[in-house]
């Protein structure tokens, strides 16, 4: 470990590193037991600092909802926080796939979105098992059921592929606004980083989503149950959908949808009750437009796209040209 990185042990223990730095130092811990030991002792020290704060009992209601939640939340299995023990570690993994790749990090080391370093405000994963989250998460696995119609990418994989994702520009813009607002806090060194420049450009070209939209993206990126769908449309083009039941939020972006005559429009629907109820989820009036919807997504509901008269309809007047279970 070089001396510069070695100095990061303190910042590491105070969670004062960005995702990239965090990943880097955690890798180095594996090769430097002394630094790892120091980091661990700082972690304990940080915990002592929290004892310096006034404790404050949370509202009692919180506990009952929490208890209900953990009752249906499976726990992780024991494996994977061990230092890498080749051969033995992998045997349990076959069922859930390649979940825990970096087991060789010290203290209680947070596995994090290390590839996903577009912005250090982008690190709201589980401290310890970021990637594994969706694979043994606490909700039912809707993903499996819809594989036929659509490609579902669990959020963990989604996150690792976020660079390539079409959400990136939007998400980066949303996240970058935070930094722009607080730009005085940022060192010139950091602002000069290419990646930031790229996100700033993305931001400018995107015309910055509204506050609400940014909030939704942020919420979606953090939610544990967020899934992403790509749904082909019968008339060409696709819909990209990112949604979370927990957050009651959905972002839909059209891609390559054919232009419509000016007297008609694409309209999105949330279809419930086995096809009997239709909730308007927004219009897609321009190709590539992003639509955000804040509504309840009941279990077994579908998302559908129809072509409607310009201005949209109260209820769909044509058959869906794209749909998928959510």
């Amino acid at each position: 470990m070089n001396e510069q990185d070695r100095d990061l042990t303190g910042a590491w223990a105070l969670n004062a590193l960005d995702a990239e730095e965090r990943a880097r130092i955690e890798e180095l811990f594996a090769q430097d037991p002394e630094a790892a030991g120091e980091a661990r002792s700082f972690e304990e020290t940080a915990a002592e600092l929290s004892a310096g704060l006034e404790p404050e009992a949370p509202r009692p209601e919180l506990k009952s909802s929490l208890m209900a939640r953990i009752a249906r939340t499976p726990q992780h299995s024991v494996e994977s926080s061990e230092p890498a023990v080749p051969a033995e570690v992998t045997q349990d993994d076959s069922a859930t796939g390649p979940t825990h790749r970096r087991a060789d990090v010290p203290p209680h080391v947070p596995e994090n979105e290390d590839e996903n370093v577009d912005d250090d405000r982008h690190q709201h994963d589980d401290p310890h098992e970021g990637r594994a989250e969706n694979e043994d998460g606490d909700e039912t696995r809707d993903e499996d059921r819809v594989e036929d119609q659509a490609t579902v990418i669990p959020l963990d994989r989604y996150r690792s592929s976020v660079r390539r994702s079409r959400w990136l520009a939007v998400a980066a813009a949303a996240l970058m606004v935070t930094s722009v607002a607080g730009v005085g806090l940022w060192s010139a060194e950091r602002a000069a980083q290419d990646e930031d420049r790229a996100t700033i450009e993305a931001l400018q070209s995107q015309q910055a989503a509204s506050d609400e939209e940014r909030q939704m993206i942020s919420a979606l990126l953090t939610a544990e149950d967020t899934s992403q769908l790509t749904i082909p449309s019968e008339t060409g083009g696709t819909l990209h959908v990112m949604y979370s039941r927990d957050q009651q939020s959905m972002i839909v972006q059209g891609a390559d949808l054919p232009d419509l005559p000016s007297d008609s429009t694409y309209q999105l629907w949330i279809i419930g009750d086995g096809g009997d109820s239709f909730e308007d989820a927004g219009l897609i009036t321009e190709p590539g437009q992003t639509v955000m919807a804040h509504e309840e997504l009941p279990p077994e509901s579908l998302i559908g796209l129809t072509v409607e008269p310009a201005g949209g309809s109260e209820q769909p007047t044509t058959d869906p040209i794209a749909s998928s279970e959510l």
């Binding site: 010290p106 709201h124 935070t178 607080g182 953090t222």
Partner: peptide, 26 residues
């Protein structure tokens, strides 16, 4: 690898920090 207290505080602090860095709270 460390105390239960340290472990729990780390989880809480990490989550809190990640939240302020990622939400409009920031």
């Amino acid at each position: 690898r460390g105390s239960a207290h340290g472990w729990i505080c780390t989880i809480a602090h990490r989550r809190a920090v990640d939240t302020v860095r990622s939400t409009d709270a920031a």
